[in-house]
Amino acid sequence: MMKKLAIAVVALMLLAPTLGLVTVGLVVNPTAIACLASSGLTVGNVPDSLVVTTANGETFTLNKQQLTHAATIITVGSSIDGVTRDAIQIALMAALTESTLRQLANTGAYPESGSYPNDGNGSDHDSLGLFQMRPQSGWGSIAELMEPEYQAKAFFGGPTGPNYPSPRGLLDIPGWQSMGKGEVAQAVEVSAYPDRYNNYEPVAETILTTLTRGTLAATTTPTAPASPVVDVAEASRVVFPLPEGTWVHTSDFGPRTDPLTGESAFHSGTDFAAPDGTPILAAADGVVTVAEFSGGYGGLIVIEHRLGGVTVATGYAHMWQHGIHVTVGERVVAGQHIGDVGSSGRSTGPHLHFEVRPGGTNGEAVDAAKWLNDHDAADLPEATAGAGCSALGGGL
Rank of each mutant, 00 (worst) to 15 (best):
K4P: 02
L5N: 04
V9D: 03
V10R: 13
M13W: 13
L14V: 15
L14Q: 07
A16N: 13
A16T: 01
V22M: 02
V27S: 07
A34V: 04
L36C: 05
A37K: 13
S38H: 12
S38C: 12
S39N: 14
T42D: 09
V43G: 07
V46S: 02
V46D: 09
V46K: 03
L50P: 00
T54I: 03
N56M: 00
G57H: 00
T59G: 03
H69P: 12
A70V: 04
A71M: 06
I73L: 04
G77D: 14
T84P: 09
A87N: 04
A87C: 13
R102E: 02
N118L: 00
D119N: 06
H125P: 02
L130C: 00
Q132I: 09
A143Y: 03
E149L: 00
Q151R: 02
A154L: 11
F155D: 02
F156H: 05
N163D: 02
Y164M: 12
P167S: 01
P167K: 06
I173Y: 04
P174V: 11
W176T: 12
G182F: 07
V188F: 01
E189T: 10
S191I: 08
S191V: 00
Y193C: 01
R196S: 10
N198D: 15
N199A: 08
V203R: 02
T206S: 04
I207T: 01
T212N: 05
R213I: 11
P225F: 04
P228N: 14
V230M: 10
R237D: 05
R237L: 03
V239C: 13
G245T: 15
T246P: 15
S251N: 07
D252Y: 05
P255H: 07
G262C: 08
S268K: 11
P275T: 09
I280S: 06
G286C: 11
V287S: 07
V287H: 05
V288L: 02
E292R: 09
G296Y: 00
Y297N: 14
Y297S: 13
L300D: 01
I301D: 03
I301N: 05
I301T: 05
R306Q: 14
T311P: 15
A313N: 05
G315A: 11
I324S: 13
I324L: 13
T327R: 15
E330F: 05
I338C: 12
G342V: 11
R346W: 06
T348R: 08
L352A: 00
E355Y: 03
E355M: 05
N362A: 13
A365P: 15
D374C: 08
D374H: 11
A378R: 07
L380F: 06
L380E: 06
E382V: 13
E382L: 13
C389T: 04
L392Q: 14
G394V: 14
